[in-house]
Design a protein around this nucleic acid. Sequence first.
DNA 1: ATTTTTGCAATGCAGTTGCATTGTAATAGA
DNA 2: TCTATTACAATGCAACTGCATTGCAAAAAT
Lengths: 197, 197
Amino acid sequence: MPKIVDHDQRRHRLAEAVWSLTLRDGLEGVTLRKVAVEAGVSMGQVQHYYATREQLVRDALDRAVQALNARIDAAIRATDSASAETTLRECLRALLSRDPESLRLLQLSVAVVGRSISDPAMVSVLAPGSSELLEFTATLIAAARQERGTPPRGNGLIDADICWSLITSLGVDVAVGQRSPDDALTVLDYHLDNLLG
Amino acid sequence: MPKIVDHDQRRHRLAEAVWSLTLRDGLEGVTLRKVAVEAGVSMGQVQHYYATREQLVRDALDRAVQALNARIDAAIRATDSASAETTLRECLRALLSRDPESLRLLQLSVAVVGRSISDPAMVSVLAPGSSELLEFTATLIAAARQERGTPPRGNGLIDADICWSLITSLGVDVAVGQRSPDDALTVLDYHLDNLLG
DNA sequence: ATTTTTGCAATGCAGTTGCATTGTAATAGA
DNA sequence: TCTATTACAATGCAACTGCATTGCAAAAAT
């Protein structure tokens, strides 16, 4: 069997093109022809890897959210041996990274949220409600409070929920340019200081 | 001069049609012809009131955000004589109203956010960053803490900022159907109880 | 009663869209 | 070497798009 190419690499290139077009022209500005030009390939190649435009867009946005989640996981693993409080801070800060690529992914995730109001299938792409992450965060919060000598309080899962909801909202503000990353970090630190006593 | 009609009423009808189409088909599914059909008017009438499709969509989304803000204001005014804590709770709860029309407006606002990542002009439509509202909320928080006999603490403006960021995030979750209104209210109440001591 | 301005309605049109179809170069297996 | 399969490339097409244009009925102003 002939001419074996790396399918995943091709799809990734196309997804990158979709990302750029989405950020520049919006999701409705993503057309097969523009994607082909942006990726520097023929339109035939786009069709070869995706049967329909909808599948193309969905896979591209899916990859964006996955990539952002991977960055959060990486942030967690990067502070593996540190204190619980450091790990907690860093993994929440991951969403507010000043790295331009993270900002891109964050903006794309916002686009996914916007689309999900009319396309329920898009909701499944979003993973912030994953209960494992919430439980892990709750564990971190409890450990960090213990490190500070603060007694346990209330419902740790809700505390974790609030943390992620807060940085999600701050992340959206940063993504649309309505809040500076520095300001967002200030708000996050303020909240964590209160939370950890 | 002849045949005077209520321009604002006509535009409102068209905006309603844009809303329905946006929630059903997404922003990219809003076409002049579909808006005309949905509103039960001719395409000529749509063109008569809006020079371009872009102006039509922008005005419709603008009206949605304005309507949602009006509901928040109404919630504040409705509890005018109540305690600060009640006013605070109710005005934050306004975003999470179980009223279907509020949910519609909330979903449309989410669509605006999604669009604003590729259309910076859309950001101006969003008003959550209005400093007056933040200051007012900070005042409410301080008053509510005093009612409870809790001493002042930290930065009231940031506390207010966190409150609005939190309900914004909860509101998005509710809008996309990833969280029930009841769950969102539970989280909000938990946060307020911690905040007010 | 006539005119003139307003508020549409209807149609036309060029451009763009997603997708189907067809053709073809390259290469792995026989 | 032959062949079958993969990976595209090129083109075609019907449907739809936003917008321009034109026509026309109703009513306020004269």
